[in-house]
């Protein structure tokens, strides 16, 4: 309870501090482009953690997003390989046909 309170206060303080800083351009990279799945951004995912991997061995990489709760969702390519737009996302499932969940707390 107390830890959670502390956690949310800390997160809030960081947000407040960050908002006062001006936007910085980075020379090494083009401007960031937001990734979408079926036309939607990953706005509803808690702490999205992306990784590209060719899961089914068809020579094309899938986009896998892990989240804080321990779930994984997979999006397939349905456009050019350098496009930020991906196809539908499916929850990644185990051999038992359940959503894979890495135990959290």
């Amino acid at each position: 309870m107390t830890t959670r309170l502390f956690f949310s206060l800390a997160a809030f303080a960081v947000v407040a501090a960050g908002s006062a800083v001006a936007q910085a351009e980075d020379a090494q990279f083009a401007r960031p482009v937001e990734i979408t799945t079926a036309g939607k951004t990953y706005v509803d995912v808690l702490y999205p953690s992306p990784v590209l991997h060719d899961l089914n061995g068809d020579g094309k990489q899938e986009l896998i997003i892990g989240d804080l709760r321990g779930y994984l969702q997979v999006a397939k390519r349905d456009s050019a390989t350098d496009s930020p737009e991906w196809g539908d996302s499916q929850m990644m499932q185990s051999v038992e046909g359940k959503d894979i969940k890495f135990s959290n707390w």
């Binding site: 947000v15 407040a16 960031p32 350098d82 930020p84």
Partner: peptide, 28 residues
């Protein structure tokens, strides 16, 4: 005090916004 200060600060600086997402940074 932290809450009170934060509330007043928000009336000046605006309410901080936060949104999750995934972004691509292509190397130049």
């Amino acid at each position: 005090q932290y809450s009170a200060v934060s509330r007043e600060l928000m009336t000046l600086r605006g309410t901080p916004q936060r949104q999750a997402g995934v972004w691509l940074y292509v190397r130049k």
